[in-house]
Design a protein around this nucleic acid. Structure first.
Lengths: 135, 135
DNA sequence: GTTGGCGGTCTCAAAAAGAGACCAGCGCTA
DNA sequence: TAGCGCTGGTCTCTTTTTGAGACCGCCAAC
């Protein structure tokens, strides 16, 4: 099984990849992860993995995002190659956002993490409550 | 294959999990993901997945983290149940941080994402460069 | 006695995020 | 024809988060 091989590989390998062998500050892996760390990035990728959406649709889909942050997060995702932006010359012009191949490829691992969160949010919330009670 | 089943499940399912079926704002999945979104969280989890570390060791291992953020991120990770904090009554007292079972369980999916980043950072950096050149 | 490591806390400045007003262009309605 | 709403944004202002670095008591070695 592939997953077994993965588990047998030293965790050190990946940690080294993340720290670039001492040159921690400008590590490419950290650089990439950083781009996904934003408050809204993963949520928007999850939404666009379902189907392409237009700006206003995303806005209504995620009502607690500000227009400013929606613009900026989509811009960043586009810049990093996860999202494609297409303007249709209708009146008024509409703009559609969709995942690129790279975005879809990244969606795989992200999906795993979200699935883990779905399975374990009770444990996390429990830990949080227990921690807060102990204080 | 499990992964095939995963791919066949509607992406909508997971998106719905992340959006809590309309109650997007207080969604538990988003809540959990949010705790991992910090700038330093994933890096520290990667480090602690290798082996337990003490405060000062982590500080030296990640030289560009401020002491303040190291304290706070470890505190948050501990609160969410990913990290265990143990004080040894030496002189001066030393504090060891290690992953809990929950933390190790979360490390799995996180590892996948980091591995993806390792494989694809060239593509991301390329996309970024192309995007910046086009502007 | 002074220096250094231990694991932090505190303060203040800088950066990022959030709230919401504002914009041009067009279609609809009154 | 005057207003209104929808399109996808930008601009400004305030609040929150992060970063840089001084400071803390304690003890051991020099």
């Amino acid at each position: 099984m592939e997953s077994r091989i993965v588990n047998l590989r030293s965790k050190l390998d990946v940690y080294k990849a993340m720290t670039d062998g001492g040159n921690i500050a400008d590590c490419p892996v950290r650089d990439v992860i950083q781009g996904l760390n934003g408050k809204w990035s993963s949520l928007l990728v999850m939404a666009l993995a379902e189907k392409p959406y237009r700006f206003g649709e995303l806005r209504r889909l995620v009502p607690d995002i500000s227009q400013r942050m929606l613009t900026q997060t989509l811009y960043d995702l586009q810049r990093d190659g996860y999202v494609h932006r297409e303007v249709f010359p209708t009146k008024p012009p509409s703009v559609e956002y969709s995942l690129t191949d790279l975005g879809r490829s990244m969606f795989g691992p992200l999906y795993e993490l979200v699935q883990w969160a779905e399975l374990n949010h009770d444990a996390v919330r429990g830990a949080r409550a227990a921690f807060d009670a102990r204080i």
